[in-house]
Amino acid sequence: MMVNNRVIKAKRIVVKVGTSSLIMPTGEVNLKTFDQLAFVLSALNKQGKELVLVSSGAIGVGLNKLHLKQRPEEIGAQQALAAVGQSELMTLFTQRFNHYLTDIAQVLLTHDVFDYPVSNESVMSTFECLLQDGIIPIVNENDTVATDELDHHTTFGDNDQLSAIVASHINADLLIVLSDVQGFYDGNPKHDEDAKLLSTVSEVTGSTFAAAGGAGSRFGTGGMQTKLAAAKRMIDENRQMVLASGKDPKIIFDILNGKNVGTWFTNQPEQILKGANSDE
């Protein structure tokens, strides 16, 4: 289904940025993206939007920091690399958000935080306090400790899933996923020159997944499959998601202004999200 005029009205927004947007193909940190992301989110924050940033990139930044070309295969080495990279990642974000006079906070999560009522209530209270105070939580999986062992499930698998889970739990109006693709196509644009960018997707089915490609870049773990899984969760909960290019984070302004960019996942294309967390 195609629509020309989108009406996306949301106050509480989760923005997910992928490793491919933060790390250049050479492995260098993309400082421009860090700066533009801080600029856009700071501007929206000052407009009264409640924002959560889910950021990948710890391992990618760690690789750059330690001058490594390839992700190590051993789990312990990957977790150590993530520990180095997460510190550097937050340093970069802190520098840029401080420049725009916006406060941020780090929230590192594991899947079992949401699985147990007491820890879930605690982290939800933390999110609410930060958002009420105009502080932008920057969320990532706690890669240094996350692991799956027997029935103890702590990993999210990828940050596309993490962003959708966070959006669900904090009752966000909208999830914006910024990636290295323009949106969702009806075929693989790398191999099919006739593949068309879909403006709107109202249902994620088996055939939708079949049209998706494989895994992401060597720096990240996500791919179109994980983004569709996130979109399906949002649609099933009557929420909205937009998948768009993260090359220039100012595209977030275009999305919120209703411009026809990226792919809009919603089961009610004409819907204006209202309710407790939306502007009137």
Rank of each mutant, 00 (worst) to 15 (best):
F93A: 00
I59R: 07
V123Q: 09
L108V: 08
I138T: 04
D133K: 15
E141H: 03
M90I: 12
T102Y: 04
V139D: 00
L109H: 11
L63A: 12
D115F: 07
T110C: 15
A146P: 03
Q95N: 13
G60N: 08
Y100M: 01
N159F: 06
M124G: 01
V118K: 15
L109E: 03
D143A: 06
E128C: 02
N142C: 05
Y100C: 00
Y100W: 12
D148Q: 08
V145E: 00
G85L: 13
H67K: 15
N64R: 15
R96F: 08
E73C: 07
A82T: 12
L63V: 02
S125N: 14
N64T: 09
A43Y: 13
L108H: 09
V54M: 10
S122D: 03
A82F: 12
E128G: 04
N142D: 10
D158E: 04
D143V: 05
T154E: 07
V84W: 06
N159P: 04
V123T: 12
T144Y: 01
A146I: 00
E121G: 15
T102N: 06
E74S: 11
M124E: 08
Q106S: 14
T144R: 08
L130D: 00
N45L: 05
F156S: 03
L89I: 11
T147I: 01
G48H: 11
R71F: 10
F156I: 06
F97H: 03
L63Y: 12
V84M: 09
S122H: 15
D158N: 14
N64S: 14
E74D: 14
N45Q: 13
N142K: 03
V54P: 06
Q70K: 15
Q161L: 13
G157Q: 05
H153C: 08
G62V: 06
T126W: 06
I75W: 01
I138H: 06
V52Q: 11
N140H: 11
E128M: 08
D133F: 05
L44Q: 02
A105D: 02
G134Y: 04
G60V: 06
Q79R: 15
E121I: 02
G85M: 12
V52G: 12
Q132W: 01
F114G: 02
G134M: 05
E149C: 03
K69P: 00
P72Y: 14
